[in-house]
Structures are given as C-alpha cells and as structure tokens.
C-alpha cells in the first residue's frame, strides 16, 4: 500500500475523527492520529495483510515548549515485505509543572521494541504510557529528579552529595 492508500484505508476503518491529518508533502510523510485510537490503529497497521508494518524502528518524544503547549510522540514503522516506511504521530497537551503528565496508550503488546523505547521516552519527557508492563526509568538513575529533555527542565542542585551543575 502506498501512503495515500494507507491513509484512505485508516480513514475508512476508523473514521475521520481518528485520523487528524496526513501530510504527504515535505521531507517525510506523516499521519497524525488521535491519542485514544492509537493502539487500535497500530494493531490494524500491524495485522492487516496489505499494510503489514512488522518492524517498529523508532519512537521519538518531542517537547514543543510552553509557548506551543504541545508534546508529540512519533512512531517510525517499517514494513519489511513491502519495503515501505510510515511515520505516525500523536499530539498531546503539554502539562505545566503542577499538572499531571500526559499519557499515551502503549503499543508494547504489539511490538516488543516499544517496551524500551517507551521507557526511554518516559524517562526523558515524563510522558506516561498506559498499560506499559514495566514503566521505569531506563537511562537515568531511578531517583533522578525531573525529565531532562523537557523545555522547562531545571537540573537538581545535588545528587547524593555530588554537585550536578558544573
């Protein structure tokens, strides 16, 4: 399936409210989907025999800053038999410091790759993945404060008596 066919198929299956936008122009084709239907859409892309996106390459978190007020999670899929890449994206409302972090349904039950990549995104951005089997920090120590790739991140003064800022 080409990109347009994939978009048309998803729109037919899940309705226009699930597929928010699709941008075939530019450097990369990207589909923006709604957060609630993400797991279903991924399951469809994985299982449908004309799509067959069997390899999840990468999950990227993105923080657009307090001015924009959004965060993103981007999924790069690849279909080995059809040699076809696909880029999925969900937009999230950015939380201020005192608010609860945004959450996304996990896809780690579909692709096991997602397990560690979602943990990494949680570690660096604080985005929670609902239904993830083991959502712990992965790159930073378990008792680290804050999520470093957020735009409003302030490093802590001391970590176990070590001055953090140099």
């Amino acid at each position: 399936m080409t990109f347009q066919e994939t978009v048309a198929h998803l729109q037919e299956k899940f309705g226009p409210e699930a597929i928010l936008s699709s941008e075939p122009q530019g450097l990369q084709e990207m589909i923006t989907v709604s957060v609630d239907r993400l797991a279903d859409i991924c399951q469809e892309l994985y299982a449908h025999e004309q799509c067959y996106f069997d390899l999840l390459s990468c999950i990227t978190g993105m923080d657009n800053g307090p001015k924009e007020g959004t965060m993103e999670v981007i999924y790069n899929l690849y279909s080995i038999p059809f040699n076809q890449p696909l880029c999925l994206r969900v937009m999230l409302e950015r939380n201020a410091e005192d608010q609860e972090a945004p959450s996304v349904p996990t896809v780690s039950h579909i692709w096991k790759t997602a397990n560690w990549h979602e943990r990494e995104t949680f570690d660096l951005f604080g985005i929670r993945f609902e239904g993830h089997p083991d959502l712990r920090r992965i790159l930073l120590p378990h008792d680290w404060d804050g999520h470093p790739l957020r735009k409003d991140y302030k490093e802590q003064e001391k970590y176990h008596g070590i001055t953090v800022k140099y």
Binding site: G26, Q28, S57, C58, M62
Partner: peptide, 22 residues
C-alpha cells in the same frame, strides 16, 4: 535545513542506526 522532520537510517555494523531530525 528547511523546517521539517526527517527520519534517516542506515546500516551500521551493529544494526539499524537511525536519526530523527527536526
């Protein structure tokens, strides 16, 4: 570069090395 995203990948000796640029 122009404003936009790109995921570029290649074959490194360890496996797929990809970069997501914005």
């Amino acid at each position: 570069p122009e404003k936009g995203d790109l995921y570029f990948r290649g074959e490194s000796p360890k496996g797929e090395l990809g970069f997501y640029f914005r």
